[in-house]
Amino acid sequence: MSSTSAAFPPNFGNEICIGHDVDFDRIKSRMTCSKFHDSVWGLVIYRCSQGHQSAWDRLLQGLRNDVRQSAEYYNREEVLQFHDLHAIDDKRLYGATSHQVREHFQSWVPKNLEDRIRPDAVDFKKDKCWDIDWLRATSTPRYEYCLFADDICLESVDQPGLDLPVVKILWKDWESPWSPEEMSRPVPAPFHDGVTEYWEEDVGWMYMPLLDYVGNYHVLGKCFWEDQYVRPPYMDGSEDETNFVGYWRKKSSSEEANQADRERPLSTEQSSR
């Protein structure tokens, strides 16, 4: 398969999972259980870029605005008090790869669950695997997926585009089928991660427009990752190289090259003509 065939990925998601209505009742029913002292929904987001402080702040605000606007649209403002976009801004994670973010998230999940358990919860370790409420509350998108924002995501905050800004959404339980040596190979164009030139390759994360935050939380709460996955930089299959995430970097490089050509001094032969 040639790299040109990568320009024809499938449409995002499938017919079973795609829907315009957000089921807030489903979200509410899975944000607590009898062993928890609180009720929470929403994703964790990691900052993986040292700069772009203003963009980071605006990105977080954009995600929270999507929650507020969605709740208002469905007349479900009561869910706002339970939403927690848990931001992790740790300098040790600046520049982290998706694999490093996943490793941190995998350790964060059990610690967060432990912190939510009521002190008087009895026989927790013994019966948790048979507690339906526990299983429902711990298999929500909050504990299966997380967001992270690197340089390219924070750059997208200041770029024009229908699906911009974006963040990256990551599946916690994804496992690479490739060896470390294979994963160190150059990424085939036009993709932003991976080993092969096939758009079917699952790299464990994908781009998500900020405006799809609540919608994706709802969809991933009832469907499988594989049903929704599109290999980056694609998001819905309609993109081309002029509007891929990161198109501005290519444009900037081209402009810099043109500027350098204009500023390059004439050779002796050229100047004598």
Rank of each mutant, 00 (worst) to 15 (best):
L113I: 15
W171F: 13
R30V: 00
E175A: 03
L80N: 05
P232I: 03
D84Q: 09
S139D: 08
E15F: 13
L266P: 08
R249E: 06
E239H: 12
Y74A: 15
W248D: 12
K172M: 12
A149Q: 04
G215Q: 09
S238F: 05
W56R: 01
L93R: 03
E103D: 14
S39I: 04
D236M: 00
G13S: 09
I27G: 07
Y247F: 15
P180S: 14
N14V: 03
F82P: 03
F24I: 06
K111G: 00
W130H: 13
P119R: 14
D150M: 05
G215S: 13
T242L: 01
M235H: 08
S139G: 09
T140G: 01
S39T: 08
P160W: 05
Q259S: 10
R273L: 15
D193E: 14
D57A: 04
G51M: 09
Q159I: 08
Y207M: 10
V67G: 01
E77P: 01
E175I: 14
Y145L: 04
A71N: 14
P10D: 03
F124N: 00
Y94A: 04
S70C: 08
S271Q: 13
L60S: 02
G13F: 02
V22D: 06
I88R: 13
V167W: 01
P9C: 10
L93S: 04
C129Q: 12
D115K: 12
L266W: 13
F8P: 04
D84F: 00
R231D: 08
E263V: 02
D123G: 15
P160H: 06
S238T: 10
K126M: 08
P177M: 10
R102C: 09
L93F: 12
K35I: 08
M183L: 15
L164H: 01
D90W: 11
S39C: 13
F148G: 05
K168W: 01
F148E: 06
A71E: 07
K172D: 03
Q61D: 03
G62N: 05
R26G: 15
G51W: 03
R102Y: 06
L63R: 05
E114R: 13
D127I: 08
Y94T: 04
L85T: 00
E103F: 10
L210M: 07
G13T: 04
E15M: 10
D133N: 10
W178G: 02
D261F: 09
W134Q: 04
V230Y: 00
F24W: 11
P232Q: 13
R30H: 12
N14Y: 01
V187D: 02
S179C: 07
R264G: 02
G221A: 05
V187L: 01
L85H: 00
